[in-house]
Design a protein around this nucleic acid. Structure first.
Lengths: 192, 192
DNA sequence: GATATCAGATACTGGGAGTATCAAGATTGA
DNA sequence: TCAATCTTGATACTCCCAGTATCTGATATC
């Protein structure tokens, strides 16, 4: 509404903001969520107080960083067939777990989900948005008559998202995208 | 192999063991993994040293407790049809997330999975064992001609285990067992 | 009895989050 | 120019908790 009432003294240095954010992102990949606040300040080449002035708690700092990390756009495939498009989406979902550092980070983030509802909310929303963005794939498939129009599409989505998260989290071998798609589309029952 | 070389002094009191274990299990449901060692000792009505004598670190204590918790036997269904049996297995898998306290604990345990590989190993093994125990369901179904004999049964298993874990972990609404089974057996593609 | 170990209690160490304080620099308003 | 206000970086402090150390007393073997 009203513009800020013109702050009196020295103003926060945007460069410091940037240096802190960069340091956190670097440390996220390098040390995971267990970085210390001193490390953040040191890596940023910044005073400890400057960190705590921006982020009241370490949790706030991590939440801010996670918001950035989770906000990654994904391309929407259009291969012409549902199987092709889905294969692409599944493969994209798998990509995160192929890189060791990203996989480790993902594990920790999914982990944090279990103890901090706000993190859970972040991840949930982010996954929902990400998946919803590829909803066109389903719509096109229904128009083409490849996909049952009465199916629960969130169920379909969560089946492979869950599979990947589950295997990734527990360190199991990741599935083959083609086989996942085939199974999801045609099921495991004998085609009678 | 050789019997213990006859310990010299006073011997560990089994009652203390039991009191500690009980206290940990109680605290697990009540406070999650964030209990303190003092709380454990206090709840057990036992000296702090007695706890640390048995468990070198808090992690060891939790690992022991988790081993107990994860070692829950599950009944193997035999309803006569694959759909019925599977429905039962899925419902059993869901049961954990229906109780609030168990759900909270499961979230934290799945979470710990992300930061401690040994916990991941515990959970992985436990899930594998648990699922393998209901492998008969698949074998019977194949004999009855209900299940494709060339399907990747671990994929089938992990699809619903992953779905449930994923939704449970993120706090999403849990799926309807019947719909899950139907989707897994017949797929989402138009039956053409 | 001598010795070794456990039980319980209490005090200590060390690391890390968060707080408090300070001197120096930056920005605005008078 | 000057005074007030805020940031910056540095340092020291408190608090919490895991893990260690010590001590007294109890209990077991030799």
């Amino acid at each position: 509404m009203s513009t800020s009432p013109s702050p009196r003294g020295r103003r926060p240095d945007p460069a410091v903001d940037a240096k802190i954010r960069a340091a956190v992102l670097e440390l996220l990949l390098q040390r995971g969520l267990e970085m210390t606040m001193d490390e953040v300040a040191a890596h940023a080449g910044v005073g400890r107080a400057s960190v705590f002035r921006r982020y009241p708690t370490k949790r706030d700092l991590l939440l801010d960083a996670l918001t950035q990390v989770l906000d990654v756009q994904v391309a929407i495939p259009d291969t012409g067939s549902l199987a092709g498009d889905l294969r692409q989406v599944v493969a994209d979902t798998l990509a995160v777990w192929r890189d060791d550092r990203l996989a480790a980070l993902s594990r920790q983030v999914l982990g944090e989900t279990g103890r901090d509802p706000v993190v859970a909310d972040l991840v949930r929303t982010s996954m929902r948005d990400r998946m919803a963005r590829s909803w066109v794939v389903y719509e096109r498939a229904i128009e083409r008559g490849e996909l049952r129009p009465d199916g629960d599409l969130w169920l379909l989505t969560d089946l492979f998202a869950g599979l990947v998260a589950y295997r990734g989290l527990l360190g199991l071998d990741l599935p083959d995208p083609d086989e996942v798609v085939r199974s999801l589309l045609h099921g495991f029952a004998t085609t009678g």
